[in-house]
Simulated assay, not measured.
Amino acid sequence: MKFCVLVSLLAFGAVAKGDGVASSIESLISSMKNSFSGLSAKRDLWYENYSTMTKLTQSDTLQLEELLLVSKMAIPMIWSLYVNQVQGQKAYLNRLVNEELSQSLPFHVEFPSPLFPYFHVEATLTMGELEDFQVEILRDGDVIYSLGVDFDEKRVVLGEAHEQNRIILEGEDFPPFQAAQPFTINVQIADDCAFTSLWMTEMDASFPVPLPTKHHWCTQDYHLASTFSIRLSQDDQGSPDSAEDDQNDFGDEHQEIQLLGLTVYDGVLIQ
């Protein structure tokens, strides 16, 4: 009787042990199936994302190619229209000053006040070496506008007589002046407002260039005037009347900045 019971217990234990192994194997297989299923899902998701990115890239490429094609055709045409418009405005405006010359600084010119205090100044300069210089506009002898360039500090300071307004261009905003490269300073005086833009290259209808930033301020300081004048000087030079003496004293040191041309238009330009 005891022997039968023992055999029965051993047989039951063997069956139980076999069931445990089978359960473990099934669990492992199930886990592997889940893992492969997860990997398959991730693979499908990766492939879907890759396909989406590929389509977006192809679409962006086509759009960029279309944009470049349009740019090549449109930008030169728009630029040409812009230059022609500016030149057309100049053709209809009276010139209060029209100097085409090559004269070293300092330079000073005076002109009668226009009927309305609106005028546009264009001064084209070049320098053999990068030297500090100043541009001033005076109303009946009083400075109402100034522009000073300091190459040591790499700073351009724009302002007016009473220092109520100051615009400082430095760091990335400092204009890219280059030796022996002509540049043009545009200043528009519109009653109490002043507008300035610095062109580092010549305006050519066949070669589009980015439009420079236009800096401006208004003072709400209104005065009638009989005369205006423009004064350009280099470093700490004195008055224009002393130009000949300066050149005699310093030889060619003051020949580095040349004024190539200066024009004052009676009126402002949309530029």
Rank of each mutant, 00 (worst) to 15 (best):
V209N: 13
P112W: 01
Q255W: 02
L105C: 06
E253T: 11
A22G: 10
G251T: 12
V209L: 10
P176K: 09
D60A: 07
Y50T: 08
G171T: 09
H215E: 00
Q85R: 07
Y50F: 12
T263P: 02
I167A: 00
M203N: 06
A22L: 13
L269P: 10
Q237Y: 07
H215V: 00
Q134E: 10
A225V: 00
L64F: 15
L125R: 06
G128D: 05
L169E: 01
F228R: 03
S35W: 11
S242M: 12
L96F: 04
L68P: 05
H120E: 05
W79Q: 03
Q164D: 09
W217K: 00
R155D: 02
M200L: 15
S206W: 08
S40V: 04
E100S: 14
A205F: 10
Q237G: 06
R95Q: 10
L105N: 04
E253Q: 08
D192F: 09
Q255V: 03
A161D: 10
N165I: 00
D152L: 12
I189F: 04
F3R: 15
L81V: 05
F207R: 15
L93V: 02
L125I: 03
L269R: 08
H223E: 09
S226C: 01
L105E: 04
G88I: 00
T57C: 04
F3Y: 15
D44G: 04
I144H: 01
E153F: 12
E253A: 06
I257Q: 00
Q87N: 14
D204I: 12
V209Q: 15
E153T: 09
D19K: 10
D245N: 11
F195W: 10
D132I: 03
N84F: 05
Q87I: 01
Q87M: 09
F36K: 11
M1W: 15
E202R: 15
S71H: 14
L101N: 13
G18M: 10
D140A: 06
T184S: 14
H254C: 03
L101K: 14
L64E: 06
Q58D: 12
G148I: 06
P240Y: 07
H108L: 12
E131N: 09
G171Q: 13
D140I: 02
G20A: 10
V21L: 11
L130M: 06
A180R: 14
Y118Q: 11
S80R: 12
